[in-house]
Design a protein around this nucleic acid. Structure first.
Lengths: 337, 337
DNA sequence: CTGAAAGCGCTTACAG
DNA sequence: CTGAAAGCGCTTACAG
């Protein structure tokens, strides 16, 4: 036990150098692969460190290179249940790429207009770059990071200029979904949910508008209920939409969709016979719903991976795309039959 | 812009010392509060670093003290939707305490019998301690950390000796819930869900058994369906329980409970009129269910905070409790009326 | 109360 | 191809 500790925990590059009768420089080079070094010498070093399970101290390495090999991820701390799978899956994608490049994920929580944890992380020099998992129309975190010159990317779109962003193509996804519904003769498609200050909401609505425009149909703004995020507000919106005799209710996300479906059941309105329903986002919540719900599908893991890859490229000083849009699928199910 | 960078980003302790005409030692002492230093000198240093927004480099500080000021958190990467709020909330508790002590959270994913990310994190010296968010009866991560001598705590109980664990008191919570149901004349309480190899499942079942024992009623093992975690298995279990004419179905967790409720609805069995239902865990999923579901309630944020506080105490070499059990509440609702 | 110096464990010009 | 030395930005005995 003691023995093991001595062997495994306290081994430094100096120990290895001494044991092998070479310099620290040589050991360092053998490990990093940088700089000229004889093949035989390298083999000898690598064999030794493998046998004795030597692992470089990331802290010291970091200090010497003025890098931390940490990536900060800012997670919303006020997200709702149905958003969780998104963050979970995205985080897995991020983590996978990070680990493959020997980086780690430093996790931080943040709320709208509150970025003390982010500032702490940046100012303490604990990370080499940041992934913002959510952005707002006016976003303190984005402004702060721009001012500091810290490399960062956002998951999801933002209207700020010069911000590297990775997103699903929500606008076109919504446009395509709505276009299909319009083609199916649902001319009056009501909208419920979403928060107007979220850029994603704006993009979704833009897609909705474009679909109507392409179809040559005028949008009835009175059947759009954005900013309905509380249960009572959603119920009220559904009542109004029933009165307005819409053909279909499109929900901005699955949380809203669940509540819309509950309300419809309470009102004894049958889906899809008396009312069609669709969701602009697809999570496992609605996977097994009866009837199954028409929705959009995105590869969220890929989104996380791309975000992380892009950030790592930035950190290494490579040129990156200002905006990367990932694909989507429209999943037609029973709720719009 | 350039100016700002120079001022804010590259400022080191030497710069501060030079500007003030004192030694680095003095600056360091003023900041850390350790060692003797004149009140006036300290004020002068603090005023200067505040004005010029100097922030110590955590990497350098860490290297000098051989600490990282990072805590590793191992999150299951295969958790189901309903478990997510638990991890989210617990993580918030952990994060809150960590930040208050100037530590950060290094996030890592792990599966049963797979701890490569954990090993990487430990061997690269990236963390000062570890929080395991889930443990198994036979747990590679626990064994590895014990062998390495790395400070760690587990959220949730484990059967391993000498492991510091923080948990909700699932056994007594279940015992109390079942006892109440038994008192309400539900003598045949079926069980569905859970994975036998999870220690929490064992504790819950123990509570169930104790309640029966205390009531002087013999347990019918044929109405216990553990390891039913797939939908098909749960449905089958519910069918069997209906045949066995149980009074109540107790679900090991909310994921299972949702599916049990769905199945009962399909079978046109009314809750609570024809069948009572209870859940051994309480998440927001069932909060708005109709009828509302009797369940247990735990303070998960407090759980995370306690786990983190305990780990930090260990890192600082303080004595800690081997096992900390946090309270619970039994929430009686309509489903057992 | 204050400072010079050594040290934490790496990397990397520079010289040979 | 290899090594001595300086340096990354802190902390901390030790001496005064």
């Amino acid at each position: 036990m003691e023995n093991q500790r001595d062997n495994e925990k306290n081994l430094t590059i100096s120990d290895v150098a001494k044991a092998l009768g070479v310099s620290k420089t040589t050991v360092s080079r053998a490990i990093s692969g940088k700089g000229r070094i004889g093949a035989e010498t390298r083999e000898r070093v690598l064999a030794y460190i493998k046998e004795h399970n030597y692992k470089p101290n990331a802290l010291a390495k970091g200090l010497a290179q003025l890098k931390t090999f940490n990536l900060g991820v800012v997670l919303p701390e006020d997200y709702t249940l149905v958003d969780l799978p998104f963050f979970q899956t995205c985080l897995m994608g991020i983590s996978e790429v990070a680990v493959s490049m020997d980086y780690d994920i430093l996790l931080t929580m943040g709320r709208e207009n509150e970025n003390t944890q982010l500032m702490r992380m940046v100012e303490n020099h604990k990370v080499d770059g940041i992934i913002l998992m959510r952005t707002f129309t006016k976003d303190q975190s984005v402004e702060y990071l721009k001012e500091m010159g810290t490399p960062f990317v956002t998951v999801g779109s933002t209207n700020y200029s010069d911000v590297i962003q990775i997103d699903n193509d929500h606008k076109n996804a919504c446009r395509e979904l709505i276009s299909i519904l319009l083609m199916k003769k649902m001319e009056r498609i009501g909208i419920v949910g979403g928060i107007e200050s979220h850029v994603v909401t704006q993009n979704r609505l833009r897609g909705y508008m474009e679909a109507y425009e392409n179809a040559g149909i005028t949008v009835d703004k009175d059947i759009i209920y954005v900013n309905a995020d509380r249960e009572a507000m959603i119920e009220r919106a559904v009542e109004k939409l029933l009165e307005a005799e819409v053909d279909c209710i499109a929900c901005l996300d699955d949380a809203v969709c669940m509540q819309v479906l509950n309300k419809l059941r309470q009102e004894h309105v049958k889906v899809p016979e008396q009312m069609k329903v669709a969701s602009f986002y697809d999570s496992s919540v609605l996977e097994n719903h009866i009837p199954s719900i028409t929705s959009l599908s995105f590869n969220v893991r890929e989104l996380g991976m791309t975000a992380c890859r892009t950030l790592l490229d930035m950190i290494e000083g490579k040129e990156v795309e200002k905006r990367t849009l990932l694909g989507y699928e429209v999943i037609l199910k029973e709720s719009t039959k």
